[in-house]
Design a protein around this nucleic acid. Structure first.
Length: 866
RNA sequence: GUCCCGUUAGCUCAGCUGGUUAGAGCGGCUCGUUUACACCGAGUAGGUCGGCGGUUCGAAUCCGUCACGGGACACCA
């Protein structure tokens, strides 16, 4: 350590705006955040969940990034070779929507007014503009990411990784093309995976329609539906095989109303005989369940709508939108007298496109699929056998529920922005070929028009970013990553898929050892932040007002594992105040000659020994809390240690020892030690303020590369802690007495102290008690719980009523304590069954309560009559 | 419908492998220019721990049940 600076030039307030920018520049210039696979330090790796290039970071990102930065900074200080890899996701459908909207607004054109190439160029322009905004926010927050390894899911190398794994899966038979019912968005004109569909309960209307003869006889059947227009595509009516009402109809046909088609009546287990009439119309091309029934009974699938959900069946309904068609069909059926029961309100779940909220249309379509069965089994096993640990553990059932029930994954999207499916078709369509990144298609062959689901490339993120499929130094050193930090809301979207593909691509090595799931950041009243509610907070606004450290600290203070957290501006204000407190504590230390030079004296006493003891205890606690990802508790511990113990007690007590040349040198060294260590401990959470102070205090380079404190258990001194606890008790009790008596805090009072073994100077200074002079005459006296008698010379009479009230209150508390504990001791069940140590504890508490009662009784008796 | 989480001070949350007078931050009230900090200091008020029942010597903590809130998944026309 170089010569400590005695600079006292610190201003009396911390101003984040002046510190943050230059400090971040310095960290980057010095290359502190650049990982070095050739170093022999052990690796610690986190890949950032790539934010969508759709705009800006929200508070949820700020929380996760604060956590990741804290983890990485601590590990770096502990001597690890840390790789924190940043990047962004191309977010296929989300970005395409935004670019379409943007073009519509600025140029008044739709997607199909552009060629595919033109549109993709526009999307890249958009990415370059908004991506930069996100990176700026990350710098502002102080994130120690390795910018030399920044990645984007559509970088050429990552695209090669996508194509490579696609081909491997294809060659292994794990990717196939098939016609199935998929979720189709008639606005975005693309298929959607199940998790891109949000279900919402909505009121609908159930209409009952009579198929077959109109006389109500045995050769007719009534079905109920909320989607009357789909009857145009019915190819059967299904009933339960054991439904006695319909036995005679099974195997027969009925004419489909409004058309000339005959459709069969089939028996299928899927039908619930207790619902409605127990008969279901079957539209295989427009309903997933009906499709399955259709498969079981070899029914034809009739597609009756086009991509925009407009009816294509020739006739009166052709050209109508599905909703217009619904009422038109009902009207036509009513005219024929086929509406049996009028519309009945019926609430049912309706699927909406999670990106544009349009009602999803189930549609029969030719798409690409990943066969997930074996992959999902492996992804489940890796958590079951503990190779991946999910934190908090309570989230694991949800993980299993997902992987164990995983259905084949529809990976093709009818979009332009994304990775194009690497499959080519021969000119006559007779041949299909999947190509790797270094292969080219024969002349005249045409590439599949679709792109891949965004999550396909995101699933490769932990290894595609490190150079896979090449065998790179980064991959060898940094894979598998140490911990994945993300919100529980994308456990399924992303975490599961990374696990599937990581195990597949990386020879059964999991992509991360741990998954740390954070909660959702909510507004001050626990409501989800959303644009429609108008309660979204831009982290930049708070950073501008209170500094990045304050935002980080307040988020960490609320970060309990897996739990959602409400944040409000008052917390950020409090965290800002804390940073300023730390600033001024360090300033005080430096003004008083704090030093880090030389060994810490081994024979410390009093407050010095106490605070060093506490400091070492706190170091171990902080380590433990970090290992358990208990950020809220870690932040709370350091907050209270710094504020309550260091600032409110130790700094005040140090003023006494600093005033005495005999004790001042040790205290200066201890002050230096305490502030030095405290700044190190806080640096991962609040990097700016700590690293603005620390080099000035210690003469060191930067906290980023400073060593993480190690607890010295030899410094734990229970005697010193007890000694200061007694001192605090005396001071607290006299302060309370003074306050109850209405004595102003600054008023100096002559006092006689007896029974105080040590620290008389501290007691007098902190309590503003003067030495008794010749004319000293005690007018008030109190005996503290530690047996110290304090006699005070108050100029006036004391407020006997106030004092009596105070003592009575204490007495009541002590009596309650005695009753509780003596009651337990008198209970044979308790003394017979409770463990010995609990009984001993209760006994000593009872005794302490008795002593307290005696003391207070005496004090009350000593009071003059009112 | 299945599953998960929550219900503790005015607000937001800790505490819950059962055993201090149930804690913190913010907010409230009183006092205060004590030379690090008013982005401060000292003091203080405030809770029958959602309801009911059970287990236990002992329950905020364990079990059952109900109510309310949040969420995930699956959905029958």
């Amino acid at each position: 350590m170089s010569t400590p600076s005695q600079s006292t030039s610190l201003p009396s307030q911390f101003t984040p705006a002046e510190v943050e920018g230059p400090l971040y520049e310095r960290w980057i210039e010095r290359g502190y955040f650049t990982a070095d696979p050739s170093s022999n330090k052990p690796p610690y790796t986190i890949v950032i969940p790539p934010p969508n290039v759709t705009g800006s970071l929200h508070l949820g990102h700020a929380l996760q990034h604060s956590i990741m930065d804290a983890l990485c900074r601590r590990k770096r200080m502990q001597g690890y070779d840390v790789l924190w890899l940043p990047g962004m996701d191309h977010a296929s459908i989300a970005v395409q929507n935004l670019v379409e909207r943007h073009l519509a607004e600025t140029e008044g054109k739709g997607r199909f007014d552009y060629t595919r190439e033109q549109f993709i160029d526009r999307a890249w322009d958009w990415k370059n503009e908004y991506g930069g905004k996100i990176l700026g926010q990350m710098r502002r927050l102080g994130e120690g990411v390795d910018w030399s390894r920044e990645r984007f899911t559509m970088d050429s190398h990552l695209s090669r990784a996508v194509q490579t794994i696609f081909k491997r899966l294809y060659d292994d038979g794990l990717i196939y093309r098939a016609e199935r019912i998929i979720n189709w968005c008639p606005r975005d004109l693309t298929s959607l995976s199940d998790i891109e569909v949000d279900h919402a309960d909505e009121p609908g209307e159930l209409v009952s329609i009579r198929y077959g003869s109109l006389d109500g006889g045995a050769n007719s059947i009534v079905v109920a539906t909320t989607r009357a227009e789909t009857m145009l595509g019915d190819t059967a009516v299904a009933v339960h095989p054991e439904d006695e009402r319909y036995q005679h109809l099974i195997g027969t046909t009925v004419p489909l109303p409004l058309t000339n088609r005959q459709i069969p009546i089939v028996a299928d287990e899927h039908v619930d005989p207790s619902f409605g009439t127990g008969a279901v119309k079957v539209t295989p091309a427009h309903d997933p369940n009906d499709f399955e029934i259709g498969q079981r009974h070899s029914l034809p699938s009739l597609t009756i709508m086009d991509e925009r959900a407009v009816i294509t069946v020739p006739g009166p309904f052709e050209g109508l939108d599905r909703l217009e068609a619904r009422s038109a069909v009902v009207a036509a059926l009513r005219e024929e007298g086929r509406i049996v029961a009028e519309k009945r309100p019926y609430v049912h779940a309706v699927g909406h496109c999670s990106r544009c909220d349009t009602i999803v249309e189930p549609r029969l379509s030719l798409q690409w699929w990943v066969r997930v069965e074996t992959l999902a089994k492996a992804a489940g096993d890796v958590v079951r056998d503990g190779r991946i640990e999910i934190i908090p553990e309570s989230m694991t059932p949800r993980y299993f529920a997902w992987v164990d029930g995983l259905r084949d994954w529809n990976i093709s999207r009818q979009l332009w922005w994304g990775h194009r499916i690497p499959v080519w078709y021969s000119p006559d369509g007779s041949e299909t070929r999947c190509l790797g990144p270094d292969e080219t298609a024969p002349e005249g062959w045409v590439q599949d028009a679709d792109v891949l689901d965004t999550w396909f490339s995101s699933a490769l993120w932990p290894f595609s970013t490190m150079g896979w499929p090449e065998d790179t130094a980064d991959l060898r050193k940094y894979y598998p990553t140490s911990v994945l930090v993300t919100g529980y809301d994308i456990l399924f979207f992303w975490v599961v898929r990374m696990t599937l593909f990581g195990l597949y691509a990386m020879e059964d090595v999991q992509p991360f050892d741990q998954v740390l799931l954070t909660g959702i950041v909510r507004d001050a009243h626990g409501k989800k932040m959303s644009k429609s509610r108008g309660n979204v907070v831009d982290p930049l606004v708070w950073m501008d007002a209170y500094g990045a450290d304050a935002v980080r600290m307040s988020l960490l203070q609320g970060a309990n594992p897996g739990a959602d957290q409400a944040v409000n501006e008052e917390w950020v204000v409090g965290a800002r105040n804390f940073c300023n407190k730390l600033w001024n504590a360090t300033r005080f230390a430096m003004l008083n000659g704090a030093t880090v030079a030389g060994e810490l004296p081994s024979d410390l006493s009093g407050a010095d020994a106490w605070i060093i003891s506490r400091l070492n205890g706190v170091i171990s606690e902080v380590d433990d809390l970090y290992e358990r990802y208990e950020f809220a508790k870690m932040a709370d511990l350091l907050y209270h240690f710094a504020w309550d113990e260091v600032c409110d007690w130790y700094l005040e007590l140090s003023k006494v020892t600093l005033a005495d040349e005999a004790t001042a040198p040790a205290t200066r060294r201890v002050l230096g030690e305490v502030l030095d260590t405290l700044l190190r401990l806080l640096h991962p959470a609040i990097p700016y303020v700590t690293d603005a102070l620390w080099p000035t205090l210690t003469g060191g380079q930067s906290l980023v590369i400073a060593a993480w404190p190690v607890s010295d258990t030899g410094r734990i001194d229970k005697d010193a802690e007890a000694e200061i606890a007694d001192l605090q008790a005396v001071i607290n009790e006299v302060r309370r007495f003074r306050s109850d008596q209405g004595i102003r805090p600054s008023q100096r009072i002559p006092a006689q102290l007896t029974g105080l073994a040590t620290h008389e100077a501290a007691v007098r200074t902190l309590l503003r008690l003067q030495e008794p002079e010749a004319d000293f005459a005690a007018t008030a006296s109190l005996t503290t719980s530690t047996g110290v008698v304090v006699e005070l010379d108050l100029s006036g009479t004391i407020d006997v009523a106030a004092e009596r009230a105070r003592l009575s209150k204490d007495l009541a508390a002590a009596q309650k304590e005695l009753v509780t504990n003596a009651g337990k001791l008198g209970n044979e069940s308790f003394t017979g069954k409770a463990p010995e140590d609990v009984i001993a504890k209760v006994r000593s508490r009872a005794e302490a309560a008795e002593a307290e009662i005696a003391r207070i009784d005496a004090a009350l008796a000593a009071l003059p009559d009112a």
